[in-house]
Amino acid sequence: MSESTTALLEAGARDEQSVKLSMQQALNRALDEILSTDPKTVVFGEDCGQLGGVFRITDGLQAKHGESRVFDTPLAESGILGMSVGLAMAGFHPIPEVQFDGFAYPAINQIVCQIARMNYRSRGTLPMPITLRVPSFGGIRAPEHHGESLEALFAHVPGLKVVSPSDPHDAYHLLKYAASRPDPVIFMEPKSRYWQKGDVDTSDAGPLTGARIVRPGRHLTLVAWGAMVARCLQVAELAAEDGIDVEVLDLRWLKPIDAEALATSVGKTRRAVVVHEAPLTSGLGAEVAQLITQSCFDTLKAPVERVTGFDVPYPSGDLEDEYIPNIDRILLGIQRVLEYRRG
């Protein structure tokens, strides 16, 4: 067999493992596989059972895996997360859902005071292998409490890990990975990206920890996560028209943050803009800017810029295009960095 034929066959074999899925379908498939392979897993939340979730993420799972493993809960997030604590203590691997980001607030006590520190409090005898799925961020014209960005809140709590996938491939693999961890993981699903399809290679996850370069570039690094990654990729294409070669770094893990990936990328490009939907003040962009400054202070061409939501409550759907960083606001952030001259 010639070398090229072998290469073609290998490419073919890989293609069979690669399927085009929306993030919605990728998450559904991941949950199905987790339930099939780990008998200790239970999936539950408001409308997760019979209805299959308001975003169809748990569609068909109750019919397949039974009402004792995939079930509906009352409309009480403190109960959903409180029950998760008990289930985890009893040896289960709960994958609860809070239906929307803003509904996590009533469960903050259970998340912060119990889930995050039970392992610490019990000297390692009561780990909390809980993966909390939170449909997150804005962009779908939903009412109040349905478009919040809670990553800085969760990342601030010792004992929690926080991750947000930006495409179907990462959504599929990161959910399976998160569910296999002994620690609690807040899994932030960018709900405005639920419907866009992408290639999911089910056989080759690639690295599951740390950040990921989604577009290499030489002049400036855009740091983003969740739904902002796709927007930053659009911005990078537009910047290329103006001769600016932008690197896009998908942070993925928001706790712990991959400081090494930030140092490597910005060490090369010497300019950075961090983009997030959450409000500016005490947002995760500040943490990212500090990590970059710490490692790249001597070579940075300009202070790290932040392009973010505003310090106001998340607005109604009619105004969210003004709130979420848009292409022009990100381009202006890039321009400010490019223009900066040391005084």
Binding site: V54, G139, Q196, H219, E339
Partner: peptide, 23 residues
């Protein structure tokens, strides 16, 4: 779409800002 909200359209990106820089 889910029961709440709409499916966002992936429109072609529109821009007004152009970058200018001497690198």
């Amino acid at each position: 779409a889910g029961i709440v909200g709409t499916v966002p359209k992936d429109d072609a990106p529109k821009r007004r800002v152009r970058l200018s820089a001497v690198l």
